[in-house]
Structures are given as C-alpha cells and as structure tokens.
Design a protein around this nucleic acid. Structure first.
Lengths: 214, 214
DNA sequence: CCAATGCCGTACCGTACGTTACGGTTCGGT
DNA sequence: ACCGAACCGTAACGTACGGTACGGCATTGG
C-alpha cells in the first residue's frame, strides 16, 4: 500500500476531471457493474493510471461521486427585502430545482451506488451523497426559512422540523420510486406544479397567519 | 435451461421456507455480498438444491424478497361507523406501522438490494418491493381516505394525490437517510410522535373543515 | 541528442464466486 | 430387502474482474 494522493487533498488536473466524467457517464449507464477496464477504455487511459491516481476501485467511485458533488454547489440566500412574494418564489424555486436534480439520471445513478454500498466498512459513499444531497439542501433552505420567520411570514419552533416537512411535501414518494426503478414521467411543467403545491401546502402548515406547528 | 418451478406458481414447502428465512437473515447481515455458499451453509442444504429450487442466484434473491413480502400482508379497513376519532387513530396507526416497518433492518436490507438491482434487465426486485411497499400502503390507505371523505371528514379531489401527500408527511427524509446509511435513532415514542404529527398535518391540509387542496 | 518522466495499451496473475458434477446418505414405497 | 428419488457435502470448473507488470511512445529538460 503506497501513499495515494487523496482526491480531497490535491485539486484535480483537467485530465483527471475528464477521466472522472467518463466514469460518471459509465456509472449512469451501467450502474455498479462498471469495471475498471471499461472506465479505462472510455477515458482512453490505462488501468495503471487509474490505480495510480485513485488507489483502487472504491477510490475511483468515491472520487467520481465527489467530483459530481463539487459541480452542483448551491447558491446562497440573500436576506434583504424579504416579502411574502419573494419568499414564496424562493421556496418554489428551491422545490423545483430539487425535484429536477432528484429526477435526473445522474442523481438516480449516484444515489443507487451510494445505497448499494451503504453499510460497507470501506469509504462511505452514502455519507458523501447525504452531505451533498439532503444535508446540502437543508443548509441552503434553513436560513431562508429563518429569514421568513424573522420577517413574520412563517411560524415554527424547530427549523429542522420545518425543513424536513418541506422536504416531505416536495419529494413525497418520488425519490424512492425512481430509485426502485419505477418508470416515471416528470415533465418540466409537472415539476413546477409539484413545487407550487408543496410550497402552498407548506404555507398552510407553517404560514404565520395560520396556527403554528405542534 | 431446464424448466424451473416459479416460486409464485407452486406454494413453498416448509423446508424451502426455512431456506428462504436463512437467506433473508444473511441478506440483512451481509447485504448483496451474500454468496450461494453462505446461504447453503446457513440453511444446511446443498448448493445443488438451491439451484434446483430457485434456478440461479437471482431467482433465490427474488424468492427471498417475495417470501418476506408474503409475510407482511396488510390488514383491511372496515368501513362501518367511521367518525373523526377512529379516522384519526386509523391514520396514526397506519403511519406508525409504516415507520416501524420502514426503519426495520429487514426493510432497509430489502430496499437496498432492490435499489442496487434496479435497472437490471433481469427479474426486477424493485417492482416487487414497490408493489409490497409504497403501492401496498396506497392500496390499504386510499380506501380509508375515501371512506373519510364520504363521511364528510376529509376533502380532496384526487385520492392518490392525498395519499402521496400523507406519504410525504409520514416518511419525509427518513427512508432515504436510512438507505444511505445515516445512523438513525428512531425509538417507539419517536415513531408515535411522528405519526401523530403527520396525521395532524394531514388534517390541516385535507380536513373538511379547512380549505381543500388545490 | 540523450536521459527521465508520465502515460497508453495490453498481457498477465490471483482470486472470488456462480455454477455444475458426483459420491454418499436418508427415506418412502413395494 | 431392494429401488429410486431427494438431498447433503464437497470438490471441481469456468469466468469475470480487480489489480500488477512491462514494453513502447511522446514530451520535457538539459
């Protein structure tokens, strides 16, 4: 076991990013059945290089998931001049963005990989996906909710509770059905409709003009 | 390829059920890394018998998932004398039962297997899990919701819409976090609390005394 | 022009595991 | 007592794939 450069330590070269993109494409197409040989062929590189750069198969998978995660860093929330209209549209955009990402082939493939490797004693892909999936959404959304509360538009005690309810209203059974392979038509307009409904229901539960939660 | 008795065709013998129980235990412990050899050893049977009974590894997994599914057939809904109290308690029991099953080791293991095999061109475990998971819950719950509507206690247009919202309020991010390997404390009292909250929120959205949905 | 380095392509190795084959044992039927 | 079926235990086979070794080429620096 020689010392291998951790992907998080050193920034990736362009060639390495190309290799990871190739791996990502194969992950989407073939899922967990992707082989080191297929990655090498797709990326037009040698297996030796794969092992030198990423250590082993698990390292390659981890680096691929992290690479995709690094591509979808979220936008931040600006706290100024928040009224009901902008809060509503902000929540709706969050919801539709989330559904769009969630139903994308890449997200489905990565979640599948992470789920099937969960509980393994090796590097934990599940933690990475959690960190860049639900937890990232929470980090982006919870400040917005609290700003809404400070502006007197929302009423709740526990921000995380409120977030998780919003999550449930938005995602419902969509993600698990996608992961389990259910054929799923989720058009752009359907996503926008879902986002509007979820936001509306969230206001019905946590809007300041109604009774608070709990 | 000789003709193999499909598990759905012929009822299982007691010995076969024992074998499948052994496979189920290994599935929970080892996940998808279970080997035919390990199942044969655990079940004290020969590999030849496994192949004769179940065809191949995939057939064994499928039979195991179906066997577990057949064990958790749900209870039916009685339509008589439904008032607000019994509807509420019915929904709460549904929710708590669902969360209890969902967070169980067997459910997590089976969903992991099904997710990691989804998209394969072989027998579709995902469809089986979907059928006996979310869809089974829908089949059990939707009649109850409609009875509640007929009794003037609930107001909604689309029963499936209402069910999926209930699903979202109950499950939220619990299942995906469990599948991704997040350590999760979900005690009995916590489950009951979650069930009460979800039911309460569902009434806030779909109760007949409030505005209907959409 | 000449190392030296880095990487490609490929052949190769070791192993794990699905699958098959086979001898030995139990057991119900006649 | 004999037969055949079913099954156990285990050895053996075939293969796919992770991981390694090595020869050749292209680029860089001197």
């Amino acid at each position: 076991m020689q010392s291998v450069a951790e992907p998080s330590d050193s920034p990736l070269t362009e060639r390495q990013r190309d290799v990871l993109d190739a791996a990502l494409g194969l992950l989407v197409e073939a899922g967990d059945t992707l082989t080191m040989t297929s990655v090498a062929r797709r990326a037009s590189c040698s297996k030796e290089t794969l092992y030198k750069w990423f250590g082993d198969r698990d390292g390659l998978l981890t680096a691929t998931v992290q690479w995709q995660a690094s591509k979808v860093r979220g936008v931040t929330v600006k706290r100024d001049g928040l009224d009901l209209i902008s809060l509503t549209s902000g929540l709706e955009r969050f919801a539709s963005d989330w559904l769009r990402v969630l139903s994308g082939k890449i997200s489905v493939a990565l979640n599948r990989i992470a789920v099937s490797h969960a509980g393994s004693d090796k590097r934990d892909l599940g933690a990475i996906v959690l960190e860049n999936g639900p937890f990232a959404m929470a980090r982006r959304l919870m400040p917005l909710l609290e700003v809404g509360r400070e502006a007197g538009l929302l009423a709740f005690d526990d921000t995380e509770e409120a977030f998780r309810t919003f999550f449930g209203l938005v995602v419902r059974d969509v993600q698990i059905r996608l992961l389990l392979g259910d054929r799923f038509e989720l058009t752009e307009v359907a996503i926008d409709g879902e986002a509007r409904r979820a936001t509306q229901q969230f206001f019905a539960l946590y809007g300041a003009h109604t009774n608070g939660a709990g």
